[in-house]
Every structure is written in structure tokens, then in C-alpha cells.
Design a protein around this nucleic acid. Structure first.
Lengths: 309, 309
DNA sequence: GAAGCTTACGTATCGCGTAACAATG
DNA sequence: CATTGTTACGCGATACGTAAGCTTC
């Protein structure tokens, strides 16, 4: 069982993502024939096909689909190692921390202030990252630490919970549900709900009220869901709610920080909470990371147990 | 920042483990000069040394030490991918499950019976593995699913808790602590305690009573610890306790299953519990794995939350 | 015939092994 | 002088690019 090469993994992932050998080859910066050959060789070694090549393009076989995620993870692990190694080797090792705009940024700023004031004046760099990009940045080594909110995928990460907030429904004023009490997730499902750009099934399940904090697979009840407008950030979300185009579940924090005359917020009895966590690369035992996490968990004792004396 | 090659990672880990270029080269099945060169090249690319080469052997630099764990993880991820890919490609895909002797085996057997009785008669193979080897088997793809007990390192794994048991003190009959009530972890620390073969700091902390189920770093109070005999399995543990050579913390299950005239079991107020979990490779979304896990969590509803309706 | 995957072939890169060298106790 | 890591050099493997099939719409 000769193990696969990194190159082969990269090729496989590229083709699986492009579903087109020519485009994948272009993306990889090589000609198309070598790519074709390399993938064929992988398949020969496996004794099974990864792709179904048909006249009209390429599709993943069941086998290929089931391997894609793991292949990405393995590639990320190696990439992360390389990035972190290069960073750690430099004399000026500034910790790189990232968060998305919102409550996470608030938290991160406070932790950073304390961290930078430590004896020795450790360096730290704050990178604001895009929607749902935080975890990927830690996974592939672009960042050391991230503060992120549910729904997160804990793959490749270790994490501590910093904060747990209930989610509330954001409704346009005068909406029929605004006075229902108690309000449940299933009430909302009859309404159009905003859809986050490039969202995964787990994320869509979360926005319906499920608690997918563990990144688990949730049976997504796609029954009679009215597709709402596509959104890219919280401001847009509130906008489409205010316009009456959708209703949404949002962290209570957003409700407090964004009072609007045209939006009302109502508690939802059975919605999974909005959890904010601090995450770092699995297995990282760097002192600077540990210190930073320690400060965060001291400032935000989310829900943690104590060790015996 | 050209990323490192798999070969380079393997070389680095080999040298870091052997701390000797010649032996590492032999283990890798190559001559020593290429190894030396490859490592040198890595260091040149990093701009920093991974090893301190002195007349009397080789040592890891601080940098090297901090990268070793992550390098192992990355290698494991790729190896696991290769193994699982080959296994999944074969027509007869028997699920490979593993557990260590003890409560985990009991649990696993029950789950296996149900799994094999599923419609379609899925194949599954039960591999008994050595002490603390279960997680590694899942991590590098030799097994699909493992049932294991604390202290486990959740790196690279996803898991569900199946069972939580208190730990009790195992004392030789007539021991002065046998009648102390309540009994605390710190009482035990004045006694010699058995040391598991090849144990890690986290494992040693756990055997002192800490709750390291999360695989976290625990400040290990190495103060005035009397080193006890080295043991390799539970039977040996009870033996050395019976002989009065040590006292130990053991899962309550062991106490029930191994009543002995020469050993008494006493509750310990503040000892972390013994947790049995079912673990599978992070990101694995194979149907057979999911089914198996589902059966296990149905049979053993350890401590889990429900999703909203 | 246009698009897209595969086969054929020559070339260049690169890592390996052997052998000679250097340093240290 | 023995052990162990480094440098020098020729060779073989292999992956790449270009060019020429092959199939399908």
C-alpha cells in the first residue's frame, strides 16, 4: 500500500473541486496531460475510480466524494505545518490572531490588550477575516489563534468555549409571529429565511435553529423551506429582515447592539445557542498560544470544569 | 514559502525520534548522506536550525521540539488518507473497529452485535489493540472506529462519550488510607503509584487523579512523588497493589469486575472520572462509520444533548 | 469540428548511493 | 582511530511539456 504523495492529493482535490481536468490543471500551474496521468495512476493503484468521466464533464464517484474531505484535511495539515514552521523560525514571532467582525472582535480586542501588556511585551497581530474564514486560517497555518462563533467545524482545531448566548428571532415590525409566545424554531421555518453565501449544510441547519456547535451531521429537514435572499454579513441580514423579505435567528448580542425601529427581536424557546469559542491548531503547544488562550479563558469563563487539587 | 514535502517531514520526524542520523537513515531505508542533506536543506529554507549537532549526538532545538508534534500529525493525516482510501476502494469494505481489553471491549461487543444484525449484514472486523494504541490506530487509518478510555488525546479524532464512571482508590488490605473518609487525591500522592509503561505527562497527571479527558495540558505537580513499579496492564496493576508496592486510582468498573481479597476499593472525592468514548477519524463521513457510531450512542447515552425539533 | 480526456516521447530536474573528507573524543 | 555528520559526483527515476490520438456532442 504505497502511500499517496502530496502532489497527488493536491491534484485530486483540484480536479474534485473544478470537476474539469483542464481548469484544474490551469489552477495547478501544469499542463493537462500530466494531471490526467497522475489521477489515472492514483485510480490504478486504488483499483477503483475516483471520477466518472463522461462526455459532458467529470463527476466524483461515491468513493471520490467520500475521500475528498479527508484529502483536504491532510493537505491542510501539511500546509499548516509548513507555514507555522516558517513563522516560528523567524526571530520576530508575532502571534497571529483572527476574528470576524462582531462579538468575536470585541472579545479578541480585550484579550489582545492584556496579552500585549504581559512582561516581555509579546508581539501579536490582529487579522480581520471574512465570514466563516477564521477556522480555515488556523487550519492551514495562516493564523495561530481564532475567535469564532457557531456553527464551527472543530476539525483540526482545539478550542475552549468563551461565551454562550441565546439566539433570538429577528422579525420585521408588524410580523404575525412578533406576538406569538412562546415562539419555536418550527414557526420560523414557514417563513423565508436568509441564506448565507456559500453556506454548508451544517451551517444551513444551524440557521434553522439546530445546535451544530459540535460540527455534527444534522438531518436537515428541507421540507417546504422557502428560500430567502442571499446575504453576506449581519448588516445585510438585518436589512432583508427589515424589508420583510425574511425572518432570521440571530445571537442576542446582535439584537442588543443593533436596535432598529423596523426590526423586533423575540426569544425562541428551542433554538440552539450562539457559542463563541477560541480555537487553535490541534497539537500546538507553543508557549505564546497557550498564554493567549489562558488569558482569554480567564477573562471569559464560558463553561469549563476545574481540576482537582 | 515553499511547503515541505512528505519525504522531508518523514525525515525530520525520524531524526527527531532517533536523535541520530545514521540510525534514522537506516530506519528510513536510505543512506545517511541524503538524509543529512535533506535536513540541512529544510533548515536552510527555514533559516533556523531544527537540530543541535554536537560531537556527542544530536539534540532537538527549541524550534525543532515545537514542530515535532505537528509534523507527526500532518504525516498521520496523509497516511490515514492513503490507508482509508485503499480500504474504501475495495469491494468488501469491512469496518475495522478496535478497543482495549476491559470495559471498552464489553461495550464494543454489544455494539458490534447490533451492527452486524443490520439489514444488509455489514461486515465488521474487531481488532484488539495494545494499551493506548487505539487512538493512534484511528489517526493513521489502521482502524475506522475505536472505543477508548480516558485519558485520551482527541487530536485528529471526533468522539462521543458513551460512559462516565467514577474512579476509586485501589489499596492493599490493611493500608492506613483504607478507612480514611473522605479520601482525596492528595492523600494518594504520598504513596508510590504504579507508572504505566511509556506514559506521557498527560497520562501521568490523569493517574494522579486529574481530569484530562480533554487532552489538555495539566500542571503536573511532580513534588515528592514516590515512583512506583512500572506496569503494562490492569492485571499487573492489581498485582502490585495487592503486594503493597503501590496504590492506584482505577475505574469503578474494574473494582466491580476484579474483587480480590487482598485489595480494597475506596471512593475518592475529587478524582476525575473514567470516561469511555467512541472515536472516529475527524471528517470521516462514511455511512458505515456513522451507522456504527449511531448504534453505540443509542445503546450508551453517555451525556449528550438533543437537537430542537 | 470543437472540446476534453488520454497516449507517446524527449527532456530536465532531483534525490539517491558510493566515495572521499572533516571534526571530535 | 573510531564514530558520526558533511561534501562531491555520477546515475537513475520520474514528472513535466509538447504533440499527436480518440471519443462525444
Amino acid at each position: 500500500m504505497e502511500p499517496f504523495d502530496l502532489r497527488e492529493l493536491r491534484y485530486f482535490v483540484a480536479v474534485a473541486e473544478e470537476l474539469n481536468f483542464s481548469r484544474a490543471a490551469e489552477r495547478l500551474g501544469i499542463a493537462q496531460p500530466p494531471l490526467s496521468r497522475a489521477v489515472r495512476r492514483m485510480e490504478r493503484r486504488l483499483g477503483a475510480d475516483l471520477f466518472e468521466r463522461e462526455a459532458r464533464g467529470v463527476a466524483l464517484t461515491e468513493l471520490g466524494a467520500s475521500l475528498l474531505r479527508e484529502a483536504r484535511g491532510a493537505l491542510d495539515a501539511v500546509t499548516a505545518f509548513s507555514r507555522r514552521a516558517h513563522r516560528a523560525a523567524q526571530a520576530s514571532t508575532a502571534l497571529v490572531v483572527t476574528a470576524k467582525p462582531g462579538i468575536a472582535t470585541d472579545i479578541l480586542r480585550r484579550v489582545l490588550d492584556v496579552y500585549r501588556a504581559l512582561p516581555g511585551g509579546p508581539q501579536a497581530e490582529f487579522v480581520v477575516s471574512g465570514h466563516r474564514e477564521q477556522a480555515a486560517m488556523v487550519r492551514d497555518g495562516r493564523a495561530d489563534v481564532a475567535v469564532l462563533g457557531s456553527p464551527y467545524d472543530r476539525g483540526g482545531l482545539e478550542l475552549e468555549v468563551l461565551d454562550v448566548l441565546p439566539r433570538v428571532a429577528a422579525l420585521p415590525v408588524g410580523h404575525s409571529l412578533a406576538h406569538r409566545d412562546p415562539l419555536y424554531c418550527r414557526d420560523l421555518r414557514r417563513e423565508p429565511m436568509p441564506r448565507w453565501e456559500r453556506s454548508t449544510p451544517a451551517e444551513r441547519a444551524y440557521s434553522l435553529g439546530y445546535d451544530t456547535a459540535e460540527g455534527e451531521l444534522v438531518p436537515c429537514p428541507s421540507t417546504d423551506l422557502k428560500p430567502g435572499p442571499v446575504i453576506r454579513d449581519a448588516a445585510q441580514l438585518l436589512e432583508v429582515v427589515a424589508l420583510g423579505q425574511a425572518v432570521a435567528l440571530v445571537p442576542a448580542w446582535l439584537a442588543e447592539r443593533s436596535p432598529r425601529a423596523d426590526v423586533v427581536y423575540r426569544p425562541v424557546a428551542d433554538a440552539g445557542p450562539y457559542t463563541t469559542v477560541i480555537a487553535w491548531a490541534q497539537g500546538s503547544r507553543e508557549r505564546s498560544v497557550a498564554q493567549f488562550v489562558r488569558i482569554a479563558t480567564d477573562l471569559y469563563p464560558g463553561e469549563r470544569e476545574e481540576s482537582p487539587s
